[in-house]
């Protein structure tokens, strides 16, 4: 095995990992604050892809503006879903179960609507960044490099937002203790809706970002949600650094695994590794004890 191939695999792993981390961060934020496993998250990713297909691919909107637009549109959809579907459920018993079933149903509805509206064929989105870089035998397209950089920037931005900004700190406070936050005068409902919107927006950006590389289809959400769940379990439910670490681990395992084994073998290996990790560290790599 040549080292250039390994380096190639490493870069691909980072790209996949950053992408998974973006989706998983949204999932973990929503779980942390609402206690809801948002099964519709993959569909938000899918919708982000379609925003890129239409606005960037067809209407010729600037790529960065398209990313922002996808976050805003899908984020707004997330806020609406939270307000009209999920929030009323939080006031009833068995939230975990009912919200989950509602989310599973919603994911289904969005997937069907997408097939009806956009057709069920795979579509290509033109590349936003052209050119190839060559460094001592390692070949990488500018596109993949840009995807990695943009993704990393977003992850860093989100962390700065959560750790330094007032709103970010409020979100963390609400995630830790709703009642205490409410007593401090925080409008828990507004923060919850905002978090839901941010989470969905992140998934949409991730879908739009990856669309030129992998193409889009109505069931791309269903495929990616599995990966995102893996990442969240791996990193620990509700843990933001865990989601990032988990994303990278899964990205590397997949990317390097595919160099040596067939795809099904890689999946079986991935699952086995994750089951093993969970037996040893039941709450994930960075989960709370």
């Amino acid at each position: 095995m040549e080292w250039s191939l390994l380096a190639q695999g490493g870069l691909n792993g980072v790209m996949l990992g950053v992408n998974y981390a973006l989706i998983a961060l949204g999932l973990t934020l929503i779980f942390g604050i609402l206690g809801i496993v948002n099964f519709t998250h993959g569909e938000m990713y899918m919708l982000g892809g379609y925003v890129a297909y239409y606005f960037f691919g067809h209407f010729g909107l600037n790529f960065f503006a398209t990313l922002a637009l996808s976050a805003v549109l899908v984020g707004a959809l997330g806020v609406i879903l939270e307000k009209f579907i999920f929030r009323p459920l939080t006031k009833r018993p068995k939230l975990e179960l009912t919200s989950l079933i509602a989310a599973v149903g919603l994911a289904w509805v969005f997937q069907m609507l997408a097939i009806i509206a956009f057709g069920d064929l795979d579509k290509n989105v033109p590349s936003a960044f052209k050119g190839i870089l060559r460094m001592s035998g390692v070949v990488i397209t500018v596109e993949r490099l840009a995807t990695i950089i943009i993704g990393l920037c977003l992850v860093v931005l989100l962390n700065v937002f959560l750790l330094k900004s007032k709103t970010g700190m409020t979100i963390r406070a609400v995630a830790q203790d709703k009642e205490a936050a409410a007593l401090q005068g925080v409008s828990v409902d507004r923060i919850t809706a905002l978090t839901f919107g941010i989470g969905c927006g992140l998934a949409a950006i991730s879908g739009a970002l990856i669309a030129p590389i992998f193409g889009i289809s109505p069931n791309m959400g269903g495929e990616v949600i599995l990966k995102a769940f893996l990442v969240v379990i791996l990193g620990g439910m509700g843990s933001v650094p865990g989601a990032m670490l988990g994303g990278l681990v899964l990205g590397f395992v997949e990317s390097f695994g595919c160099l040596f084994f067939s795809v099904p073998t890689v999946m079986v290996l991935t699952f086995s590794i994750i089951i093993l990790i969970l037996i040893l560290k039941p709450k994930g790599l960075l989960g709370h004890a």
Partner: peptide
């Protein structure tokens, strides 16, 4: 036909809600 699945999804969400 195809819309049946959509109807199912809407029914799940509507009933739960």
């Amino acid at each position: 036909g195809f819309y049946e699945l959509l109807v199912y999804g809407l029914i799940i969400v509507g009933i739960i809600r």
